[in-house]
Measured scan of single mutants.
Amino acid sequence: MSIQHFRVALIPFFAAFCLPVFAHPETLVKVKDAEDQLGARVGYIELDLNSGKILESFRPEERFPMMSTFKVLLCGAVLSRVDAGQEQLGRRIHYSQNDLVEYSPVTEKHLTDGMTVRELCSAAITMSDNTAANLLLTTIGGPKELTAFLHNMGDHVTRLDRWEPELNEAIPNDERDTTMPAAMATTLRKLLTGELLTLASRQQLIDWMEADKVAGPLLRSALPAGWFIADKSGAGERGSRGIIAALGPDGKPSRIVVIYTTGSQATMDERNRQIAEIGASLIKHW
């Protein structure tokens, strides 16, 4: 067993022997301040990774656009098919120029040779490549099948209805392509620590998230040296922004954090800054 596999296998073990965790309302004060600064709703939840206990939450059962955070769930569904012998990570998928959609920095470079399922998941999570996500959605049967996968996990809230990039439209009061912070946090925890996926697939999923290259201005910008984070960000229309993450000190994750916002007129930089400040408060009061 590799060191990384050992780390993920012992996530519940280490967490069980940690000192009790206590909620700190100071972080919620910052979440509410972010709402004021952005002029928009902000949803927040913080779960203990081992027990699933909610440590703090704000608007945990209000719907927010998922945006690209759905790509972690998508690759979880792909990995479940791999575990069941219905898919192979090494299978190569070929596609054409007509398949390319807006923001496809990886797939646009491989029109000639195609990409493997493993490479597509890596591109979808680490670079948020939209064509990679659409190609992977095709392998599982489309958005409705991802929703069905989530329902089978016990998540009857999260739903995907459309493809990239239309799913980022974020129309107010439109339930399409949305989740709730509580539902997303619980589902992410199941994917990373539950028995739904094999140990190898859980490790692969967290490795992809740990290698995320496009979430630097968010929670990662607030992390002290030595902290662990595996995350996936999302951005959408109407001032929408979000991030889902597993993080913790001492090089291992111990909490799940989900943050979503929508309806702001603020710039992307300002949305990023507010999420980073929430992260800084979380870490300060850990």
Rank of each mutant, 00 (worst) to 15 (best):
S2E: 05
S2A: 09
S2F: 11
S2H: 15
I3K: 14
I3M: 08
Q4W: 08
Q4V: 08
L10M: 12
I11S: 07
F13R: 02
V21W: 05
V29A: 14
K30V: 11
L38G: 07
L38N: 06
A40P: 02
R41D: 07
R41C: 07
Y44D: 01
L49I: 14
G52S: 07
K53P: 03
L55V: 10
R59Q: 06
R59D: 02
E62H: 08
F64L: 02
C75T: 12
G76S: 12
G76D: 01
V78K: 02
L79I: 05
R81M: 08
V82A: 10
A84V: 12
G85Q: 10
E87P: 02
E87D: 09
Q88P: 05
G90S: 12
R91V: 05
R91M: 06
I93K: 04
H94K: 14
H94Y: 15
H94D: 11
S96F: 12
Q97C: 08
N98H: 14
L100R: 04
V101D: 14
S104H: 06
T107A: 10
T107W: 01
E108R: 11
K109G: 14
T112V: 13
S122C: 08
I125E: 01
T126Q: 09
N130S: 05
T131I: 01
A133E: 00
T138H: 14
T138I: 11
T138N: 15
T139P: 03
T139N: 10
G141Q: 07
P143F: 03
F149E: 07
F149W: 14
F149R: 07
H151S: 09
H151A: 14
N152L: 10
H156V: 10
R159G: 04
L160S: 11
L160C: 11
L167N: 07
N168L: 05
E169F: 12
E169R: 11
A170Q: 07
I171T: 14
P172E: 13
P172Y: 11
N173S: 13
D174C: 06
E175A: 14
E175M: 14
T178M: 03
T179I: 01
M180A: 14
A182K: 14
M184V: 09
A185N: 00
K190E: 15
G194S: 14
L196S: 15
L199E: 15
A200L: 10
S201L: 06
I206G: 10
W208T: 03
M209F: 03
E210V: 14
P217I: 06
L219R: 03
R220Q: 04
S221C: 11
I229T: 02
D231F: 03
R238M: 14
R238Y: 13
G242Y: 00
I244A: 07
I244E: 01
L247R: 00
D250S: 14
P253D: 07
I256Y: 03
I259Y: 04
I259H: 00
Y260P: 00
T261H: 06
Q265V: 12
Q265F: 14
N272W: 01
I275N: 00
E277I: 13
G279T: 07
A280N: 13
S281Y: 15
L282F: 08
K284Q: 13
H285S: 10
